[in-house]
């Protein structure tokens, strides 16, 4: 190599051999290195020469690793792309919407409905509807407790940090809970003999009020505690006089107490007012849902 113009010369075999074994002095090496960047032919010759030196073993090892590191997407996409599409958006939405609906709560709701039917028709228990009405408002409240919060959702901290988290998600999941429990329990109540108990749909407003109350209370103490308070309060109010009554009159006392709690325009109006009040409180407490709620 007689001059510095990289395009007019190619490396001699002697130069390549000395570069490959590391004995070429610096300025000559620089010149060759610059030339190799642009001359694929000389690059291949130098690479072959280096393969023949002590570095050959290392080069072979690295070659294995590099070929093993082929991007996995390209291997998988071709055969697996058609059989593994993302599940349809609606299915994912339904799956995500209710931890309660896909957990133990759904069998529990079904058990309440089917159990009431079995008692009413199979067991000859005349006050099945009263019992169902006493329990029904608690069912969506339990669903709320299982829908949102650190104990209900393993990804709660992550979800709470997303824009769709917080109250919006809690309401979406509550809607899923109500969407399952309201029709199921109301239809079950309609199918049962009345026998002095209030109408089958009478529990709807109290159920809504208790659910919204639980959500509003949850912004202070967390979903689980709030649900425990509202559901426990309802059960105490409805069942307390019954436990004091003699055993044979329990059904009648329950129906009587339920009538007091559910029947009449004034009572239903009060429940509606309670629901509206809870909704207002929930709106006011909305920012609390943007922070992490304690269990």
């Amino acid at each position: 190599m007689s001059n510095g113009n990289a395009r007019t010369w190619h490396a001699s075999d002697g130069l390549i051999a000395r570069y490959a074994d590391g004995s070429l002095p610096e300025p000559d090496a620089w010149s060759l290195e610059k030339h190799l960047e642009g001359c694929a032919g000389c690059a291949a010759r130098v690479s072959r020469a280096v393969h023949g030196t002590a570095a050959g073993a290392v080069l072979a090892q690295v070659r294995e690793s590099v070929l093993a590191a082929a991007p996995p997407v390209l291997k998988q996409v071709a055969p697996e792309a058609p059989p593994a599409p993302a599940p349809p958006r609606l299915a994912r939405l339904l799956w995500a919407v209710g931890p309660a609906v896909r957990g133990a709560w759904l069998p529990a709701v079904l058990l309440v409905a089917v159990g009431a039917m079995a008692l009413g028709y199979g067991g000859g228990f005349p006050d099945a509807r009263a019992l169902l009405l006493a329990i029904a408002p608690v069912v969506p409240v339990a669903g709320v407790a299982l829908s949102y919060g650190p104990h209900a959702d393993p990804l709660y901290e992550v979800v709470a940090a997303t824009p769709a988290g917080g109250l919006r998600l809690a309401l979406t999941r509550t809607a899923a809970v109500l969407g399952v429990s309201l029709p199921l329990l109301t239809v079950a109540g309609l199918l049962l003999p009345a026998s002095g108990a209030p109408a089958a749909a009478a529990w709807l407003l109290p159920g809504l009020a208790l659910t919204l109350g639980s959500l509003a209370l949850a912004s202070f103490v967390g979903c689980r505690t709030a649900s425990g308070v509202t559901a426990g309060g309802w059960l105490c109010a409805v069942l307390a006089p019954v436990s004091a009554a003699p055993a044979d009159g329990a059904g009648a006392r329950l129906a009587e107490q339920l009538s007091r709690c559910l029947d009449g325009t004034g009572t239903q109006g009060a429940w509606a007012a309670a629901a509206a009040l809870s909704a207002a409180l929930l709106v006011a407490r909305r920012p609390a849902y943007d922070r992490l709620i304690r269990s």
Binding site: G22, S47, V50, A55, L59, V62, R63, L67, L74
Partner: peptide, 29 residues
């Protein structure tokens, strides 16, 4: 496009001189 044979060919053409050039700049093999 993810062709391993092409990568093997490219490696054989260039890995040697890259190794030599890196070795001149870094003492730790």
């Amino acid at each position: 496009a993810g062709d391993p044979a092409a990568m093997a060919d490219l490696y054989d053409r260039h890995a040697g001189w890259l190794h030599a050039r890196l070795t001149r700049r870094c003492a730790d093999p």
